[in-house]
Design a protein around this nucleic acid. Structure first.
Lengths: 274, 274
DNA sequence: TAATATTGCTTCATAATGAAGCAATGAAGT
DNA sequence: ACTTCATTGCTTCATTATGAAGCAATATTA
């Protein structure tokens, strides 16, 4: 009997504390949201939100920056609303600045998400007067950033803000999975028109690193020699004198993008079928 | 002296009538807009509009459907607002149904237009309370239609609704030229992934007609033999027994799209660089 | 010093593309 | 009825791009 109490007491305590913690978090978020509701109404355009799919490349894996609301178990994209005084690009820049500390981020719109039920039941515990509870159509922007330049910032509404592997995504809230998928699909298509690596890689990189980036974006293996040949033929890379030492094998050449040629390639487009 | 009067009298009369007509039109539109303002506020989402770039192909030329407001000298894209009960696709469908009578139109989103000043000064003669005068961000949708299926409809707000040649566009209002250009650019890119002809051509067509369509979209000449070879190799066309008689030369084969193979091609994508 | 995995770059076979041409066709002109 | 002629169907040849494979050159470790 005594043993049973010794066993159960900490367990019950733990459960009680867990529930209490969850409750407090919930209350905090609720208070915060309701407090900010009036301000939101004043400064933001109603019905319009911006969701950002931030891509980074690290350890040979493509990553996406995700956040978790205090209230929620599910993960979501960093997003926000449009100030009455800004356009989408400015809104996304501002949102990502607050979220990552990074500025001058490469941004591209890839679609809008306008279904009626996309946030259905999301704020069901809140009063209808809550600004955030209205119907929103969302503009999707994807960002390409150098992984090292970004410091994920957990804000007042969030319980977490982390890089997640594209091949191992957690469960998403609302339609954020669909948004992420479309962003990746768009990025994949862009690969045919633009040399993508510039924004995702650090200043210096090797050919195998660049190839690995392409392979993760496309989700398929590429032939090494052919990749090399094609990349060189684009004529947008400068090769350094030194190589990258450290690996247990032949040290690969270091490259950087030749900004001038790169800009030109952006204008011309890499290839077009017709 | 008498001659002078005979000469000037009709001229003055004409001028007076012209100004009067313009004034009446303006007043009509103003009244209409103000009358509809309250209803608009009730049924539409604020701040969000939809603009449609409707492409058609006729007489070997690519056409865009344009409208002219009663009030205005400049031309604009057929557009409208989103009902509180619909998504963008439904909104664009509804708007185009009213404008062209056509249903089940092929639609694709190609971007949003969100700059602060995009409608600057457009409703400057109207009170600020006018619903239409608020800031709008616009979602651009392009439509591909069979020219023959469309009957341009001039509605209460418009003075005209006509097909205009893509190579000879009139002056546009607001940022509608920019929107049109982006639509065409997107269409051009789509050509690399999808067999576009299906939605723009009548059920039966010849190879030179199809080539002409591609040439006008891309705005460049294509080699005849190579176009033929490539199109055939896609294996999405069915050839009819009969040919099209009437020309003063060898009568070209008639083709139609094989819907089954066409759908499959849409799924697979025609070609992708990487 | 040998072993080893990786990289730089080339080679060969094959496929795709660019450019040109020939035969077939169908109406108009003679 | 015959010729003319622009257009079309389809093929051929040269060139380029791509896929697949391989060899030599590393830079570490054993």
């Amino acid at each position: 009997m005594k043993t049973a109490i010794f066993f159960f007491y900490p367990l019950i305590l733990y459960i009680v504390l867990y529930i209490l913690h969850a409750y407090i978090c919930r209350m905090q978020l609720k208070k915060l949201l309701e407090k900010k509701s009036a301000e939101a109404k004043r400064i933001y355009l109603p019905h319009i939100s911006v969701d950002c799919v931030v891509f980074g490349f690290h350890g040979g894996m493509l990553k996406v920056l995700l956040t978790k609301l205090k209230d929620q178990e599910l993960w979501g994209l960093p997003g926000g609303y449009m100030l009455k005084t800004e356009n989408v690009h400015e809104a996304a820049s501002r949102i990502l600045k607050e979220r990552t500390g990074a500025e001058n981020i490469y941004l591209q719109e890839f679609g809008t998400f306008t279904s009626l039920n996309r946030s259905e039941g999301f704020f069901k515990d809140y009063p209808d007067s809550l600004w955030n509870k209205q119907r929103f159509i969302s503009i999707g922007m994807f960002a390409l950033v150098d992984y090292e330049d970004v410091t994920p910032i957990t804000d007042d509404f969030s319980a977490a803000c982390e890089w997640k592997d594209i091949s191992d995504l957690p469960p998403f809230m609302m339609d954020h999975r669909e948004i992420t998928d479309k962003a990746l699909l768009t990025l994949r298509k862009e690969l045919n028109y633009k040399p993508i690596g510039y924004n995702l890689l650090p200043a210096e990189f090797t050919m195998p690193e660049l190839q690995r980036l392409y392979e993760t974006i496309l989700n398929k293996k590429l032939n090494r020699g052919n990749f090399y040949r094609k990349m060189i033929s684009y004529d947008i890379l400068d090769q350094f004198e030194e190589t990258r030492k450290g690996g247990a094998h032949r040290s690969p050449n270091l490259y950087c993008f030749n900004v001038k040629k790169y800009q030109q390639a952006l204008k011309d487009g890499l290839k077009e079928g017709w």
